[in-house]
C-alpha cells in the first residue's frame, strides 16, 4: 500500500526508527569503560597519557588501555557492548551501573594503585608479533545457518601480540555484523548458537585472520532452559572488622562467560572503613570500576555466575577473592 502523500509519509517514517533496546546501554557501558581506562591510564602517568588526552576514537581508547596495561578492554567491550547478548546485559551490571554505584563513595587512590598485574598477562602469553600479520588468509565463504542449533558459549583467545582484532558475526544473509573488538592477547566471550559463523579480522587492515563456527561441548546445557528463572544467589561475602589482608597474589580465576544471571551480596561489617569490590575480567585483570561499600552496609551486585571479584580494603590491600562457582562448559578457541 503506497500512501497518497508519499514524500511526507517517507519523512514521517523516520520518526519511528529507533535503536535496538539495549543499544544505549551498550554504548554507555562502552564509553564509560573507555573513559575509566583513559583516566586510569592518565593517572598512571605513563605513555597512555597522550592517548587519553586525545580520547576521540575507539582506536585511541583502546590504545590508551593497551598502552597503560590497565584494564582489559576485551572484557570491557564484551560486557558493555556487542558481544554479550542483550539478555545477559540486562541481568549483568553494566559498567555504567557499577560506576554509578561506585560514585557514591570516593575510591581511594591506593585501591587502584595497589592492584597487581594480571596473572598470565596478555603481553607475556602472546605469541610473536607476526603470528597475526603472517597468518594465512582463510577462505571466507560460510554463513550462519538460518535455523541455528543448540546454544553454545565460546571463548576466543587471540595470540596476536600487537594487532587488535574485530569479531564479526556472519548472518544468514552472509553479511558481517560487528560484534566486538579484541585487544592483543585478550579473550573474547560470546554466547551464540551452533551453526553460527564468525569472522575475525585485523582491526587496522580489515584483513581476514580466521573464520570460526564454534561447536557445543557435549556437557553444555541449553541456554534457553538454563538461563530461565530467578537469578542465582551467590554465596554471601562478609568482611569482618578483624579481617587482615592476605598476601598479594595474581587473581586465582578469571571471569568466565556463559553463566546465568546472578546476584552477589557483599557485607562490610567494619565500623569506619569502606571496602572496595573489584571486578575481575576475562583475562584475570581487575577492571577499573571498583564499587565502594560503606561501613556497616550490604552491597547487592548484579552479575553472572561466571564472574570473579576481589575485595580490597581502603588502603588497597587484598582481603579476599570471590571465584566463580559454576560449571564452565564453554568452547575454547585460539585465533589465529
Amino acid at each position: 500500500m503506497i500512501p497518497e502523500n508519499f514524500s511526507k509519509a517517507l519523512l514521517r517514517s523516520a520518526k519511528n526508527d529507533v535503536p535496538l533496546p539495549n543499544a544505549k546501554v551498550r554504548a554507555m557501558a562502552h564509553v564509560e569503560h573507555a573513559l575509566a581506562d583513559a583516566m586510569q591510564a592518565a593517572a598512571a602517568g605513563n605513555g597512555a597519557l597522550v592517548a587519553a588526552k586525545t580520547l576521540a576514537t575507539v582506536k585511541v581508547a583502546v590504545a590508551a588501555a593497551v598502552l597503560a596495561g590497565a584494564a582489559g578492554l576485551g572484557g570491557g567491550y564484551e560486557l558493555g557492548r556487542t558481544s554479550a547478548p542483550p539478555v545477559k546485559i540486562t541481568s549483568a551490571p553494566t559498567a555504567r551501573a557499577v560506576a554509578a554505584e561506585a560514585s557514591a563513595l570516593p575510591v581511594p587512590a591506593a585501591v587502584l594503585a595497589r592492584r597487581p598485574a594480571a596473572s598470565g598477562a596478555p603481553a607475556e602469553a602472546a605469541a610473536p608479533a607476526d603470528v597475526c600479520t603472517a597468518a594465512e588468509v582463510v577462505k571466507a565463504d560460510k554463513c550462519s545457518t538460518p535455523k541455528p542449533g543448540s546454544s553454545v558459549t565460546f571463548a576466543m583467545k587471540t595470540r596476536c601480540s600487537e594487532a587488535s582484532l574485530d569479531v564479526f558475526w556472519v548472518d544468514e544473509s552472509c553479511r558481517e555484523v560487528f560484534r566486538g573488538l579484541v585487544a592483543p592477547g585478550a579473550t573474547f566471550w560470546q554466547d551464540s548458537y551452533e551453526g553460527h559463523v564468525f569472522r575475525v579480522r585485523d582491526h587496522a587492515t580489515h584483513r581476514l585472520v580466521s573464520e570460526i563456527s564454534p561447536a557445543r561441548l557435549e556437557a553444555a546445557q541449553d541456554r534457553a532452559k538454563y538461563w530461565k528463572g530467578p537469578r542465582t544467589e551467590l554465596p554471601l561475602v562478609v568482611v569482618h572488622e578483624g579481617d587482615t589482608p592476605i598476601p598479594e597474589s595474581p587473581v586465582p580465576e578469571c571471569t568466565r562467560g556463559g553463566g546465568r544471571g546472578a546476584v552477589l551480596h557483599v557485607k562490610n561489617e567494619r565500623k569506619t572503613e569502606p571496602i572496595a569490590l573489584m571486578r575481575v575480567d576475562f583475562d584475570c585483570k581487575e577492571t577499573g570500576h571498583p564499587q565502594m561499600i560503606a561501613p556497616g552496609t550490604v552491597a547487592e551486585v548484579g552479575c553472572s555466575e561466571g564472574h570473579a571479584f576481589r575485595v580490597r580494603d581502603a588502603s588497597g590491600a587484598l582481603l579476599t577473592d570471590v571465584v566463580p562457582t559454576f560449571l564452565d562448559t564453554s568452547t575454547y578457541l585460539t585465533v589465529p
Binding site: 535503536p19 551498550r26 554504548a27 564509553v31 576514537t57 585511541v60 581508547a61 556487542t82
Partner: peptide, 13 residues
C-alpha cells in the same frame, strides 16, 4: 551503533 558510540567518545574527549 558503532558510529554513534564513536560520536559520544569524541564528545567525551
Amino acid at each position: 551503533e558503532d558510529a554513534t558510540q564513536k560520536v559520544f567518545l569524541v564528545f567525551a574527549g
